[in-house]
């Protein structure tokens, strides 16, 4: 996870200084994004993937659970079975559409939960400082001392398999890095003069946190959090690939990849499709998060 911090995107927008002042912050962000065709393209692909998942019941040509033995392992391009059939003759296109619902949910939920848990722990540690900071951050350090995937597997192994436990495990591994970022930006913001000034002019703690601290730390925390979405999707699909998540016959990209693995000798191109979806989705999130960071980072 530490790797994500080391990344410094190189694309810089050539914007005259006058233009920045005239547009304001969000105007500049929007302007910069409009100058970045890669981010826009992958953003559009991502929106299409989400729409496909949301409208799966409308779009899907078949029933995702109806087995159809004569259509077992049919090749890509078979009429009526555009992307072929799986090991039980179910329509791949249909199952990929439905699989997106589960996989996107299982990938995004832990990020949101970790943002809430890790974010509040980090902001608390940074704002209160002292012993509280020590206590919270040292516990985070211990979780951080595990290789990410190993801890996720250990936790699902211990809690037992199933989607609820999988969500818990991934939330636990994503919270410490978010807490670290939140703690470090909060500590920086707290030291600024305007916080001291607000306190001196009689603002109470909750006002200071709401108005002065949160408004300044949320941006960096959110930018960092978006960079974790791709990791979360890959790991949650990976755990369900191992059979730790949802149970058959639920359509889920990770689980579909696992059950089709046995058919790679007979029908290899259909077998790799669910993984291709995981890959495309995770790449879209990575590029989108890079693009957002470039657009929102005003130092360039």
């Amino acid at each position: 996870m530490a790797e994500v911090e080391a990344l410094r995107p190189g694309a810089e927008a050539e914007v005259p200084i006058g233009a920045i002042v005239a547009r304001g912050y969000w105007g500049t962000v929007a302007y910069r994004l409009s100058q970045d065709p890669v981010t826009i393209a992958f953003g559009v692909v991502l929106i299409l993937i989400f729409l496909a998942a949301i409208f799966a019941p409308v779009l899907a040509p078949h029933d995702p659970y109806k087995t159809n033995m004569p259509m077992r392992l049919t090749a890509i391009g078979t009429p009526g079975f555009l992307l072929g059939g799986d090991e039980l003759g179910r329509d791949m296109l249909t199952r990929l559409l439905y699989g997106g619902r589960v996989s996107l949910f299982m990938g995004l939920t832990p990020v949101l939960l970790a943002l809430l848990i890790g974010g509040s722990l980090g902001v608390t540690a940074g704002f209160v400082g002292g012993k509280v900071n020590m206590g919270i951050m040292r516990v985070m350090d211990v979780f951080y001392a595990f290789p990410t995937v190993l801890l996720a597997i250990g936790l699902t192994g211990a809690l037992g398999t199933g989607s609820r436990n999988l969500l818990i495990a991934i939330t636990v591994i994503l919270s410490p890095p978010i807490a670290r970022v939140a703690e470090s930006v909060t500590t920086q913001v707290r030291a600024f003069d305007f916080v001291e000034a607000a306190r001196a002019s009689g603002a109470d703690t909750s006002t200071i946190i709401r108005v002065h601290v949160l408004s300044n730390v949320l941006g960096p925390i959110l930018i960092y959090t978006t960079s974790l979405v791709s990791v979360s999707i890959i790991i949650s699909a990976g755990l369900s690939f191992l059979g730790f998540g949802v149970t058959p016959p639920t359509a889920d990209w990770g689980l579909m990849l696992a059950t089709l693995r046995t058919t790679i000798w007979a029908n290899p191109y259909v077998a790799v499709l669910p993984g291709l979806m995981i890959f495309i989705t995770s790449m879209c999130f990575n590029l989108l998060s890079d693009g957002m960071r470039n657009a929102m980072d005003m130092r360039f």
Binding site: E3, S230, I234, A237, G238, F241, L257, R261, I264, P268, Y269, A271, V272, G275, L276, I278, F279, S282, M283, N286, L287, D290
Partner: peptide, 18 residues
């Protein structure tokens, strides 16, 4: 590099086997 960090390595394994 982006492909490297985005590709699920279990899927890459299967693709390599294929």
């Amino acid at each position: 590099a982006v492909i490297g960090v985005s590709v699920p390595n279990y899927w890459l394994s299967i693709v390599l086997v294929v």
